[in-house]
Every structure is written in C-alpha cells, then in structure tokens.
Design a protein around this nucleic acid. Structure first.
Length: 441
RNA sequence: CGGGGCGUAGCGCAGUCUGGUAGCGCACCUGCCUUGGGCGCAGGGGGUCGCGAGUUCGAAUCCCGCCGCCCCGACCA
C-alpha cells in the first residue's frame, strides 16, 4: 500500500478524551474513531490489526477442536426468559422492540442461544462432546465505558461453548480451552497469566480469567514471579490426550496468581517466597467458565445416553475479548514514540520510507523494493509522500510496523538501504539487492 | 447511578467574568526552497461557536431548557 493512496488520519497531538496510552495511540495512529461513548469505527489501520487478531484466535480455536458458527447480534427476549437472565442481566442489556412490538435485545453473550441451537441439533450421547464458537459483536450497555476499546459498549468477542455428557468430560473440554488460550495469547506476543476467578453473572463452578500485565490494567493482581520463566506456548500438545492437557493446566495453575477480588494474602505468603511476590496491574483478555447444567437444565439441552436414559449436558463458555486485545497489546508493547506491534498482528509487515520522494534514483530504488517485497508476500506500507524525512520517521515509529526500510540519498550513493527494527531500535545497512532476502529469508 | 468538568476549524486551545459579529499553534492548499528525525520563506482555504427557545439595536459571551462527551466513585468482558 502506498501511503499517498491510503486512509490513515494520524494526529500529532493526543486527543483530550483519551486517558490511557493505548487509547491515545490508537487515535493518533488513525486506527479508530469514536462514534459515541464506548462505540468506535475501525479505520483501515485498526481494522487490519483487529482482523489479524481475530484470525489467530480462530486458528487456535480450530486447532483445539472447536467449530465455528455465527449467531446474530439481535436476539429474542424469550430465550432469555427461559434461562431467567432476562431480568437478572439488568440495565447492562440493551433492550429494543421490533415493528411488531416484540421484545428483542442486542446480545451481550450467547449461552442461551447456543444451548438452544445445540439442543435442537443433537439427540444422542454420540453427538458429544462438541465445542461451538463464534466471533461476533456484542453490546453491553456499560455503566461507564472508558479507555477506548478496552471497555467499549460494542465490542468483538470470541465466545465458545462446550457440551459434554459427564462432568469429567466437561473438565477436559474446559482444560482444552485453557491450554488453547495459552497458545493463542503466546502467538499474540502476550503473557496472559491465568488466575482463578469469580464466576460473576455467567455463573457456574470453575472459572479462570487470563490477564496480561500492564500498568494501566483495571485489576490489581498478585502472582508468583515464576510465571515469567514458564514455557508460554512453544509446547506441543495433543488436545485429545486428556492427561497431557490436564498436566499443562495443572502446571499453569500451580503457581499463585490472583486478582484482588480473589486474593488471599495468607495463602499468598505461604505459597510464594517474599522475593518472588509480584504485585501489578492486569488487563483481562480472556475468561473461561465451567458451569455444568446451569443453562442446559432450564433450556432442556439433553441427549439420550447409552443406557437409553436422558442426560442433561454439562457445559462451559469461553470468551476472548478480540477488540480489547488490540488495546491490550498496545498497553503491553509501546514506547515514547508509539506502538510496537508484534509481527503476528502488525497491520503491515514493513514500512518503506522514501526520504527523497520525487528524486528519480530514490523513487526507482523504492519501487523496486516495494515490488520485490510484495512479490514475496510481505505487506508493505510505502511512504511515498513528499514530506520531510523527520515527519516520515515519526509517523512510522508511531504506527509501529516491525520493520522499517529507509531509502535516502546518503545510503543510495553506496547502494545501500538502512533497515531498522522498531522493537529493538537496531539498525543495519544492507545492500539494495539484498534487502528482500534479508527480510524474507 | 452519585460527584466533578468540558463542548469554539481535522487536532490542541484562547476568547465567555465585563455582549459589538471569532482568533492562535499544529494539520491542510499554492509557489519557492529543502530532503537522514515532526525544515524554512511567502501567500491562502476552512468554523450556522453542541442544539433549541429567550433577553437585547446587537449573543460564542447573559437567562432557561435539552443533548453529547470526559474524569473520580460504585459496577463490570
């Protein structure tokens, strides 16, 4: 993409409504635009990142055996009356009426609907276990939306729902999602520490939330420093192997980690030596629940077992805040100059800077590199605008692409380009005809 | 939902107290210059001052009503 033809409205100053760094940077980098409190348009740069995160989440869900569906954003109130949550959910649920005066709602989550879908589609114990998920926009009429996409009212969430015959099988489904989340967050360049959580309005028996550490997190967290040294996703796992999966879960739940709501100071001090205690702040990016028959019972989600008797299914739900992750990754990865995208989610792989746009030699060198890198499958954002070099560097640092290729008269006279790594700041001079190889080899 | 604050050009702000028909910086446009960290000179465009109703010869400014947004708290993915 040539910057001269793109839509990337960047700002030099911080908009005053933005309080935290990810919100400021997302606005400054032209990723989002606020439409109402807690409601954002995703501009091209932001949308690219959102789609990349969504795709990684999807791939890891598929790898763990979950099956993708898509449910509507608008739901009927009737289903929610059956589960008893129509009243229980309170003002956070956005309620609307259609032309026939029927009560509808903008879905804040989908336990009821998916349970109803699954109930209608299965009759036998042979039809379980299953895990269905979708990645869809949710609406929760938050009392107080804030921090940009971190707490929006409309947000993109991956939510998965597992159905099993027995509690033990349900536990395995829960464990699979637990492990899948570790791998998902690792691919996003994050260490998301699993912490035992309260079940909240979703309800249920077992629950963990995954928090990434960042100064601006909404939750205070207490954990064992040993978490830093663990293997966060490089491990191979066979999701069908019940013992192996359980072993990983055990490993990641054996060390102390808790949010302030669940924090037990006495237990903390007993289990974690003083020099390994870390107190910080965290951002919740995932939350998993095992709730047994809480929804399958009232919604009649049952199958016939091997002995011919009806069995109410055990279920769990598993959420990842996809749009929140965009902000969360920035909170975890930025510096004074701007965003530092992990390569896996960067909106473009490479920023190509032409320091002398309009100069025949510089233009030709850039065009050749742009074509060469693109041909190798790299997404390149080529800054071909007629702007002073300083402005181009500042822009490129702000938007945080992992690699910058800098072409200017100084290097061109020796036939070289400068390559800069955004994260480390390391620069290297590379012969023009070796640049493509260096960045794709 | 309680408390506080703010709405004036794309962004950041001044002007409001004390009424006289809107200004600054950045951004943008044109020309020249420049091209390795937000460059220089000159010229220029853009705003029904959140909305409505009042007071007044005259309202961004005063009065009344409404809307929107932000922050703190309580609440929450």
């Amino acid at each position: 993409m040539r910057l001269s033809r793109y839509f990337m409205p960047i700002l030099r100053d911080d908009p005053k409504e933005a309080e935290i760094v990810s919100h400021k940077l997302m606005l400054r980098a032209g990723m989002i635009r606020q439409e109402a409190a807690g409601s954002y348009s995703w501009l091209p740069m932001g949308y690219r990142v959102l789609k990349k995160i969504e795709q990684i989440v999807r791939e890891e869900q598929n790898r763990a055996g979950a099956i993708e569906v898509l449910m509507p954003t608008i739901q009927s109130a009737d289903l929610w009356r059956k589960s008893g949550r129509y009243d229980a959910y309170g003002k956070e649920m956005l309620r609307i009426k259609d032309r026939g005066d029927r009560e509808m709602l903008f879905g804040p989550t989908n336990e009821e609907m998916i349970t109803d879908i699954f109930r209608q589609g299965v009759q036998s114990y042979k039809d379980v276990p299953r895990n269905l998920y979708h990645i869809q926009w949710k609406f929760r009429d938050e009392v107080r939306p804030r921090f940009g996409v971190m707490r929006g009212r409309e947000f993109l969430m991956k939510d998965a729902y597992s159905f099993d015959l027995t509690r033990e099988a349900g536990q395995h489904s829960y464990n699979k999602m637990f492990v899948s989340y570790l791998k998902t967050f690792a691919r996003l360049g994050l260490k998301a520490v699993p912490m035992r959580a309260e079940t909240g309005p979703i309800g249920g028996d077992d629950s963990h939330e995954f928090l990434i550490l960042a100064e601006t997190g909404e939750s205070e967290v207490f954990f064992d420093k040993g978490f830093h040294d663990m293997d966060w996703g490089a491990f191979e796992i066979d999701f069908d192997n019940v013992e192996d999966v359980a072993k990983v879960v055990k490993e990641f739940t054996s060390k102390y980690a808790a949010t302030s709501e669940m924090h037990d100071a006495a237990d903390y001090e007993k289990r974690v030596p003083a020099d390994r205690r870390v107190t910080g702040r965290g951002i919740e990016v995932g939350h998993i629940f095992f709730f047994g028959t809480k929804y399958s019972e009232p919604l009649g989600c049952q199958v016939q077992g091997p002995d011919g008797k009806m069995v109410v299914l055990q279920s769990g739900s598993y959420g990842i805040g996809v749009s929140r992750l965009v902000g969360g990754i920035i909170e975890a990865s930025h510096d004074k100059d701007g965003i530092i995208w992990p390569e896996s989610v960067a909106p473009f792989d490479i920023g190509l800077i032409n320091l002398k746009s309009g100069d025949a030699e510089a233009d030709a060198a850039c065009e050749k590199l742009y074509a060469g890198l693109t041909a190798k499958g790299k997404d390149v954002l080529y800054d071909d605008r007629a702007q002073p070099g300083g402005a181009k560097f500042a822009t490129m640092d702000l938007i945080g692409l992992p690699w910058q290729v800098i072409i200017g008269p100084r290097g061109l006279k020796d036939g070289i380009a400068e390559i800069k790594n955004r994260k480390t700041g390391a620069r290297e001079n590379v012969a023009l005809d070796k640049v493509v190889e260096r960045l794709t080899g």
